[in-house]
Each structure stands twice: as C-alpha cells, then as structure tokens.
C-alpha cells in the first residue's frame, strides 16, 4: 500500500486515533557461526544491531526470533537474556531473524507528542510572517502530511513519497471526524476515538485515496 499510517492528534498533543496499513515488514533471517559478526546492544527493552550491515540486516534492526522462536523483548522464548545467548560458543550455529522493530502503543503516543512540538517550533522559527506549522515533511522513504483544523486537531498521514491526492484525503478525514466523532453523543472531546463508523468510513476514504495512484519521482 502507498499509505502507511494515519494519526489524529488533539490540540494538547495527545494521540486520539491511529491506524497502520500492516504491510509486511522486511525481515532477514540468517544462520551465524561463532563469533557473531554483528554488534548487538540493548536499547529500550530491545536488542538492536549497533554495527554491521549485510544480507538485508541493517543498523537499528531488532532481534525478532532465535532459532525460529520469537523473542520477548530482551529475553528469549525460554527466559534467557538475548544478549548472553550469542556470547556462548556452545549455542552455535544459531539462526537469528532481524527486522525493523514495530512501534508500540507508547511509542506512537510519544511520537505524536513529539510531532506536536515540532509543528509549533516550525512555526516559531519561520522567516515569513503568518506561517503555519509543518504541513508536509519529506524523507526518502515517506512523506508526512499534516492538516490542522481551526480547533487545533491535527490529521497526520504518512504515505509513499510519490502518493498523490493526500490533500483531499486529509479533508475527507476531517469530514468523517466531524460526522462520526463529534456528532456521537457518547464521544468525549479530546479522548481517544472509539467509534466503529469512524473506523469504517476512514478505511473507505483510504481505499479511495489509494486509487489516486502515484506520480513521478520526487516533488
């Protein structure tokens, strides 16, 4: 899919809705002999690759499974420390699967708050009068589009750099929010959106936006 995720952030920077496209993340599995030719380190309850890139394994990738068994944070499936396992030559050869770590709910909340601050600073540091915050942020792998309503709600869409039609999608999401969240008598303002109709209509809007296709590289 060319649309990766959608975030709705309230005016205080809290995440009130989030959706991911669940595209399968690239994973690399490889059998290693002693000693390991990758440097691993513990970071935020995950074991990440700190140095060494080969066969699809990249710096920042996390250990996902050892010998086919999923790891649990920094522990193996049978309760041992992941970092100690490769240090023992008796455990070799060992098969390890690496992949980009999936964002946890807490991390998504943190990233939404971080974007809230970046949005405001982008406006403060503007060399022009009357500038808004960040409306589009571009990297080589994705583009982040942001639409802030007059009431301070931010609709954020992460899409492929070449995906077109995001502006109309953002306004459509605003319509859906107005119709199915604000008019819901059980919805408290600034609280997470748990409305089934909002979910359904958002997914329909995303399907329409997917068909808008892509245009040439760049821009």
């Amino acid at each position: 899919m060319a649309i990766f995720s959608v975030y709705v952030v309230n005016k205080a920077g809290g995440l009130i809705y989030q959706w991911d496209s669940y595209s399968p993340r690239a994973e690399a599995e490889k059998t290693f002999s002693y000693p390991l030719d990758l440097l691993l380190k513990l970071h935020d309850e995950r074991v990440l690759v700190a140095f060494g890139q080969r066969d699809g394994i990249r710096v920042g990738h996390a250990v996902l499974a050892i010998n086919g068994m999923d790891v649990n944070g920094k522990y193996t499936a049978d309760g041992k420390e992941v970092l100690e396992y490769p240090g023992n030559s008796a455990n070799y050869p060992v098969s390890i699967r690496f992949g980009r770590p999936r964002l946890t709910s807490n991390e998504k909340l943190m990233l939404a708050s971080m974007f809230h601050s970046l949005f405001a600073i982008g406006s403060q540091l503007s060399p022009e009068q009357g500038s808004s915050g960040i409306e589009m942020l571009e990297t080589d792998t994705f583009k982040l589009h942001c639409f802030q309503t007059l009431t301070g709600i931010k609709f954020v869409v992460l899409a492929d750099p070449r995906q077109a039609g995001i502006d109309s999608l953002l306004r459509k999401i605003y319509e859906i929010y107005s119709d199915f969240a604000l008019k819901n008598p059980f919805y408290s303002l600034e609280m997470p959106i748990r409305c089934e109709l909002f979910d359904q209509n958002l997914k329909l809007a995303l399907e329409v936006a997917e068909k808008a296709g892509t245009f040439g590289p760049g821009s």
């Binding site: 990249r58 964002l103 500038s131 792998t141 994705f142």
Partner: peptide
C-alpha cells in the same frame, strides 16, 4: 529521530525537507 522511528522502511538519506504554509 522522529523520522527514523516513523519510517516503515529503512532510510538512506533520511530527512530531506519540510514545508509550512509560508516557507
């Protein structure tokens, strides 16, 4: 750090640019 966490794929160049309504 935001874009490195947000990116669904491995990045090469990373953050390139951002725009607001005026700059």
């Amino acid at each position: 750090s935001f874009v490195s966490k947000m990116s669904p794929l491995d990045m090469k160049d990373g953050f390139l640019s951002f725009q607001t309504s005026r700059y």
